[in-house]
């Protein structure tokens, strides 16, 4: 089943660039991402906090949280393509909550180009696994969808075998339990030897505090993964950058 996404992406690849598409974030400007949306959401003028990926002012290396030691520690670097807001947020939510995973095709080229310009080439790509119950309901893992797009564009292999541990109970009760769930030790690597001495990109759709990436990275470190780079479509903006009116 895991290979399905890879094949699906390949088959439809030919069709992607066939017409002049509209901007995927605003639906109006010139696609795939118009100049206005690039400025509004991709924010090339801002740095990314090297520890957690948050968008920060270009003067600094790390955000305040990470400087205070509250950020991830197991990752060599974390980065995010854009700011989780407006049209970009809607785009990601359409993929996730409106069950439109095929939308990833519209941005896989520019996102991959950007990713490879920011991070070193690695041995493989790992998607952050989803809760089993949510995966069962949604039918796909958006992180895997993003990983497949990167795999197709960049040729980096996909590494599997990371799973999210949880006890299954009533569907309805689960979401509350999930929130209370401590992430430490929530992930397990089925075949640790696969990751021994490897370098990987760890993929998720959105990062806020970096705690999910950190928990997966911890499990990967334990089986000897050498380099771990977190990569997300979008991240938050450091608070001091947000104007007071917001």
């Amino acid at each position: 089943m895991k290979g399905l996404w890879r094949n699906a992406v390949r088959i439809s690849q030919v069709l992607w660039y066939k017409d002049e598409q509209a901007c995927v974030f605003c639906g109006e400007g010139h696609g795939p991402i118009c100049l206005t949306c690039r400025m509004n959401y991709l924010r090339p003028e801002l740095r990314r906090c090297t520890r957690c990926g948050k968008l920060i002012e270009s003067g600094q290396l790390d955000c305040l949280d990470c400087l205070a030691g509250r950020g991830p520690k197991q990752l060599d670097q974390v980065t995010a393509w854009g700011h989780y807001s407006g049209g970009m947020k809607e785009f990601i939510q359409r993929i996730k909550f409106k069950s439109q995973p095929n939308l990833i095709r519209e941005i896989s080229r520019p996102f991959s180009d950007w990713a490879i310009s920011q991070l070193p080439v690695v041995d493989g790509i790992v998607a952050v696994p989803m809760h089993m119950s949510r995966l069962a309901e949604r039918g796909f893992n958006q992180a895997e969808v993003i990983a497949s797009a990167l795999h197709w564009e960049l040729g980096l292999p996909i590494l599997s075998g990371v799973e999210r541990l949880e006890s299954r109970s009533s569907q309805v009760l689960l979401s509350r339990q999930e929130r209370l769930h401590n992430l430490t030790g929530a992930f397990n690597v089925r075949q640790p030897e696969d990751y021994q001495g490897k370098s990987v990109w760890l993929i998720d759709d959105v990062t806020t505090t970096g705690s999910t990436l950190e928990a997966v990275a911890e499990a990967l470190r334990q089986c000897g993964t050498k380099e771990i780079y977190g990569l997300c479509l979008a991240a938050g903006l450091e608070k001091r950058l947000v104007p007071l009116s917001e």
Binding site: M1, N7, A8, S99, Q100, L135, E137, R138, G139, F140
Partner: peptide, 27 residues
């Protein structure tokens, strides 16, 4: 409809009525 690979095999999402909420072969 837009077809995509789900963990249960092929799935499909309707775009025509998406404005009143998601409609897929898994919902």
């Amino acid at each position: 409809l837009e077809e995509w690979p789900s963990i249960y095999g092929s799935a499909a999402t309707c775009g025509s009525c998406a404005s009143i909420g998601v409609s897929t072969s898994l919902t």
